[in-house]
Design a protein around this nucleic acid. Sequence first.
DNA 1: AGTTTTACATACCATTGGTATGATAAATCT
DNA 2: AGATTTATCATACCAATGGTATGTAAAACT
Lengths: 196, 196
Amino acid sequence: MAKRTSEQAEETRRAIFDAARQLFETEGYSGASIASIVAAAGTTKGALFHHFASKEALFLEVWKSLQLEMDADTRTAAAAMRSKDDPYAAFLAGTRAYFKWAATPAYQQIVLIDGRAVMGLARWQENDDRLGRNNVEQGVRYLARKGLISEDGVVPLSVILLNALNGAGFALTRKDPGITEDTLFDAFEKLLRGLR
Amino acid sequence: MAKRTSEQAEETRRAIFDAARQLFETEGYSGASIASIVAAAGTTKGALFHHFASKEALFLEVWKSLQLEMDADTRTAAAAMRSKDDPYAAFLAGTRAYFKWAATPAYQQIVLIDGRAVMGLARWQENDDRLGRNNVEQGVRYLARKGLISEDGVVPLSVILLNALNGAGFALTRKDPGITEDTLFDAFEKLLRGLR
DNA sequence: AGTTTTACATACCATTGGTATGATAAATCT
DNA sequence: AGATTTATCATACCAATGGTATGTAAAACT
């Protein structure tokens, strides 16, 4: 078998991508070998390296897809609550939506665990900023405009809040008593509303 | 050269450990090959695998050493401020000490970046909890006893605060304007004191 | 129709973490 | 003290890994 139509090629690429996303989730980045990915996708290494520059590039694409899905989700959740009378409502709605994502095995393994190790510190920050932190910062800035928090602390506060959210996702995996989506959300809400 | 005295053996082990810690920091876990480690230590793979069960085991030991140093540091910093009139003082002093650690390249690369990927989610939580979260939880519980926060939210709040701290460490690497040890600390302090 | 390019498949390669074997001197035992 | 065991490596080897080079046949283009 050699050249397929460009439609079929897209199918092949997609099969590799899907298999990779699945295996990166269940086996982790280093546990998911290229051989296992192409086997699951029903193709060969030739196809993989034709469509993706490297294992890392493939991972990055999977990473981005997850982040974009999450981003869209939280944005719409936040937007839906924007015109409420409670100025915190939009932010908190986004938080809820993010918790849902952060509690999924795929998001944890790929984004929260392997992501930073694979991308390295610099690239991770660069990418993470454009999505997660920007989102949080937007919410925080809104609260600042409403006069609920001080203007100058927006950036560091955003950093802290974003990471608090990330960590909360992790905690959800463990069956630790006292840690549920609701209790975590409550704690976060209290923190946020406590800001003056 | 073959069998050395047990004193020399300890030296060899130490040389490997030190080289590993150095290379894990600068090259990352996967970037630091066993060959490069033993070369830097002036020995061979035979010695490494005699003293350590695997690369992962070696990494874990380095990881633990960092965590224990950090733990001791923050504990003493917090203890020094315990009897102050401000009930938040001890907690915040520990926070300051932790920030210092979280801002070091070694701590970031080894503990915050590679640690969780190498150990996997389960082992990472298990180990991280015994140190970081236990520490934070202790501080939070103290505040609860003082009546400054509610008793029942201690666990989830600790989770959130611990991760907020971890993330703050990361942020310190980047030269982003507005993010310094001081501004981050201020933001954290405000969050903490805002709790009622 | 002929040429070029795309989409793979296969064979190959260097490096990797890890193991098996061997060697030698220190500890230990008798 | 001599014999035996055992700790401490060094070296040779191994399977698996990510990645590359090469080949090839069909599609796309001119």
